[in-house]
Design a protein around this nucleic acid. Structure first.
Lengths: 154, 154
DNA sequence: CGCATAATGTTATGCGCATAACCTTTCTGT
DNA sequence: ACAGAAAGGTTATGCGCATAACATTATGCG
């Protein structure tokens, strides 16, 4: 691998991050959401009530980030936090009715965003994309250190 | 396309962004750099002195971000800013000797990061990856609205 | 020319995410 | 049973990135 390729790849990942996030921000803004918050809503919608540690794990961000996100979503009435009965340290986070309605709207936007993102790509590429991206994520994941099925050279 | 795929794709992009950036941060930290700054150094290394507007364009971030990045890299002695002779508004940014040396070290890290990222992926996938990622970036790019070769449905 | 408009850059402010330090509660090992 | 370690959560702080508002300089058109 030459440097030119390496640079192109890293740059491409960086730019995709910026643009995809910016596009998501534009789509979410009318709902009063900032990018990142949608992931929390979708996670709660998928799995039901979770404690913050589980959210931190699922969203792939650190506990302090979850604290702030939940606080803001609670302030806007989309989620509710109540103390866990069996563990006085933990707090259970769940969607409110407003939050559930919002999650539905987010799902539509998310669908549109995904289609927009892969527009014009070959069908097979589109099919394989999530696995490819997840493999790359696993390769550079410092939280779950190296748990890929097909380990490489480097 | 069903929602499950859309969610998987968006989530995969989001997670790859977080992890790739985190890994980059870990690699750059010993050099005293934060992620994002390396892009500026590499751009200057590639193309020579640029004014900030050009950097903003090349890095894909907004002018205020460039202002802060250049200020910090100037404070650490890696770049130099001098007024443009032909345009009193613009300031020309260029690498110092220290900056050039740092850029060389960044290049090595960048190479290692790219190899680490695509480890275990099929060779053909690796070859096509940059183009795929760039196509997706173009699809969601709100700055350069829709300039892809193979236009899609959406 | 002179004036409206565009371009360059800066400051102020806000959000997401990170780490570090801290408190409280739970678990574990002896 | 109790001390130490581990886990859950919060606060404080810092960086990258964004937008909005602004000052300065260039430019294009009458």
């Amino acid at each position: 691998m030459d440097f030119e390729y390496a640079d192109a790849l890293n740059q491409a990942i960086r730019l995709l991050s910026l643009r995809h996030r910016a596009r998501a921000a534009a789509l979410l803004a009318p709902l009063g959401l900032h990018p990142g918050q949608e992931a929390l809503l979708l996670e709660l919608d998928r799995t039901g009530p979770r404690i913050q540690a589980q959210l931190s794990e699922a969203l792939g961000c650190e506990p302090p980030s979850v604290t702030l996100m939940t606080r803001k979503l609670e302030a806007s009435g989309h989620i509710r936090r109540e103390p866990a009965p069996s563990d006085k340290r933990a707090s259970i986070v769940e969607l409110t009715d407003s939050g559930r309605a919002l999650a539905d709207r987010v799902k539509q936007l998310w669908h549109a965003l995904a289609e927009e993102t892969v527009a014009g790509l070959p069908a097979q590429t589109v099919t394989e994309l999530p696995a490819i991206l997840n493999a790359m994520t696993g390769n550079v994941d410092t939280r779950r250190p190296a748990s890929h099925t097909a380990a490489g050279t480097a």
